[in-house]
Every structure is written in structure tokens, then in C-alpha cells.
Simulated assay, not measured.
Amino acid sequence: MTHLKVTYDAEANAAYLYFTDPAAPPTKVAHMYPCDPDRVDGMINLDFDGDMRLLGVEVLDARAKLPQYLLDAAEPLNRGNA
């Protein structure tokens, strides 16, 4: 089974779903494509590398957009200790 890394910042209500190999060195985002906030009723950003491979998805207003079980299982981000 493949495990998806998900982080969640409860204060910002923002989640990030990673589509990269956790064993590989981090890949720099070269292109960010914001989805139309009117069509998705919020803000969702798609991050791509230089070869246009999808690296991850940022979801703002995550509590309204993602299932609760995913947020419960996400790695919490504590901005106060960043």
C-alpha cells in the first residue's frame, strides 16, 4: 500500500498532500497553478517541478474540502514552533 504524506496547519486551516517519494531529496516547486477559486469554492494550488510532474496539492479551507479522516491522520504543523 502506498502512503500519502499529508500535513495540516489547523490554525491556517490549510493542508498539503505530497506526491513525491519521501526517500528522495526534496524537489523544488518550479510552477504553481492556482485552481479557479470560484469554481472550487475555495483555493487549491497545484505544484509542479521543472518537468511538469505534479509534486503536491495545497488545499486552503481544508476542513470544508477534505474528509475529516485525512485531516485527523495528517502530520500537524505548529506554526508557533516553526
Rank of each mutant, 00 (worst) to 15 (best):
D41S: 15
C35G: 07
L70N: 09
V40P: 04
P25A: 10
Y33K: 14
C35L: 15
L4Q: 12
L60T: 07
D47N: 14
R39Y: 08
T2W: 11
L46Y: 11
A10Q: 12
P26L: 02
L4R: 13
V29E: 04
Y8I: 06
H3L: 10
H31P: 00
A15P: 08
E58D: 10
P25N: 04
C35D: 07
A10I: 05
Y18R: 04
A62E: 06
R79V: 10
D51R: 09
D9A: 09
L70D: 09
P25K: 12
L55V: 00
G80S: 10
T7F: 07
L60R: 06
D21G: 01
G56H: 02
G56I: 03
T27G: 01
E75D: 11
N78V: 08
N81D: 14
C35Y: 09
Y18F: 14
Y18L: 04
A23T: 15
R53G: 01
Y18H: 14
P25C: 01
T7C: 06
G80A: 11
L71A: 04
L70A: 14
L46C: 02
F48G: 00
N81Y: 12
L17W: 05
P34G: 02
H3K: 12
V57K: 02
D38E: 15
K5A: 13
A23K: 15
C35T: 09
E11P: 07
A14F: 07
F19P: 06
A12I: 12
Y18N: 02
A10Y: 03
L4V: 15
A62C: 06
D47F: 01
D47Y: 03
D21A: 00
N81H: 13
I44Y: 00
A14Y: 07
L71N: 06
V59G: 03
Y69E: 13
F48C: 00
D41V: 11
D61W: 09
D47E: 11
A62R: 05
R63F: 02
D21N: 08
T20H: 00
D49G: 00
A10S: 13
A62L: 06
V40Y: 06
N78W: 08
D51F: 02
A23G: 09
L55S: 00
M52G: 01
V29R: 07
L77H: 08
V40A: 05
P34E: 05
Y16F: 15
Y33G: 05
A73V: 06
G80H: 11
D36P: 01
A23Y: 12
G56V: 02
T20P: 01
V59R: 03
N81Q: 14
L17R: 06
D72V: 06
A14M: 14
V57N: 02
P67A: 09
E75T: 14
P76T: 02
G56S: 01
D36H: 06
D9F: 08
P37Q: 04
E75N: 09
A12N: 14
A74L: 05
P22M: 06
V59I: 13
D49M: 00
Q68W: 05
M52Y: 10
D36N: 13
A12G: 14
L46F: 10
A62S: 07
L70P: 08
M1P: 10
E11D: 14
L66C: 08
L54M: 01
G42V: 08
L54S: 01
A23M: 13
Q68H: 10
A10M: 04
L4F: 11
A74D: 07
